[in-house]
Design a binder for these strands. Structure first.
Length: 302
DNA sequence: ATCCAGGTATGCA
DNA sequence: TGCATACCTGGA
């Protein structure tokens, strides 16, 4: 018997200070979809009325675009205050992504210029580190829909209920108490062992993950890779989406395709591509990666 | 039915 | 170092 959940009124979410006075930021629906459901995060779903509904940390929220393209949010009444506080950092508000994008080498890179144009307003979320790690540990050779399914089951079966019908993801401490068999029952497959072993590792080291998130990129990445199931790509995703390390340049099959098709890097190894990416795109290579990724996925079916 | 999906760990040249 | 292969499982 579903209990009623009262939602707050819609309120504006200011992402970045407008670059020039008078010109407010307009977000295209497809770009919002890419931000929420393009593969950075795995817990946003479209509702019947076309708005988005998602859960992160102890927060539950709905998001939609106004007629003018401004971003609006609503939350369960009881959480409204928390969400008002935690939504801006989740969206990395104030980061100035427009300025960062302008700093990418699009002037000398026509393909990048095309990507920036196609997904104007694209941004990186700043998700809770632990949840980001969990999501990408589950991501190996799975499509986004499948990953979302796993994550949803993990939340529903092993995460605390925040408000009726909405569960947060289990913490790593909580995951340490879940048997591998039960993780497999959440459709994790061979990833269940990664999650279980990582949970065991983290359970004995309460501050390890957060401390790792504070380290410089190279050190943080090296430490993350100590975790079972965390290789180059997952480590970079965790650092990019969960620790705000914009120099991280995750190389997945889409990026390999993009580099081959758009930059002529035929037959390059992932590590070489990662190096090329960081050199060519610079300090915010991770932002460029998101643009390339979004463009390639849109271009190449699925 | 057969193949593949945002990888990683392991075993061999 | 570098390349092949196994690892789970649902869906096309």
């Amino acid at each position: 018997m579903p209990s009623f959940l009262a939602w707050s009124d819609w309120q504006p979410l200011v992402l970045d200070p407008p670059p020039e006075a008078g010109q407010s930021e307009m977000l295209a629906p497809a770009v919002l979809a890419e931000i929420l459901d393009g593969g950075q995060a795995f817990r946003w779903v479209r509702t019947a009325d076309g708005s988005w509904q998602g859960v992160w940390s102890d927060c539950v929220a709905r998001l939609k675009l106004s007629e003018q393209g401004a971003l609006l949010w609503s939350a369960p009444q009881t959480l409204a205050e928390t969400v008002a506080h935690k939504l801006p950092p989740y969206f990395a508000a104030g980061t100035g992504f427009a300025r960062l994008a302008d700093g990418l080498p699009w002037r000398s890179d026509p393909h990048l210029a095309r990507c920036l144009e196609s997904f104007r307003g694209l941004r990186l979320l700043r998700q809770p580190l632990g949840e980001t790690l969990l999501g990408f540990l589950c991501s190996a050779t799975k499509q986004i829909v499948q990953i979302k399914q796993m994550i949803e089951l993990l939340a529903r079966r092993h995460g605390r209920e925040i408000v009726p019908e909405f569960h947060r993801l289990p913490t790593w401490t909580e995951l340490a108490a879940v048997r591998e068999e039960d993780l497999r029952a959440c459709l994790l497959g061979f990833r269940a062992r990664y999650v279980q072993q990582t949970a065991q590792f983290l359970a004995g080291r309460p501050d390890w993950l957060e401390q790792t998130g504070q380290l410089p990129y190279a050190e943080a990445k090296e430490r993350l890779r100590e975790l079972p199931g965390v290789g180059e790509k997952v480590a970079d995703c965790v650092l990019l989406f969960g620790a705000g390390r914009f120099e991280a340049f995750p190389v997945d099959v889409w990026i390999i395709r993009a580099m081959k098709a758009r930059y002529g890097l035929e037959g390059w190894a992932p590590q070489q591509i990662a190096h090329f990416g960081r050199v060519h795109f610079g300090a915010h290579a991770g932002l460029a990666q998101q643009y390339l990724f979004a463009f390639e996925r849109k271009a190449g079916g699925r």
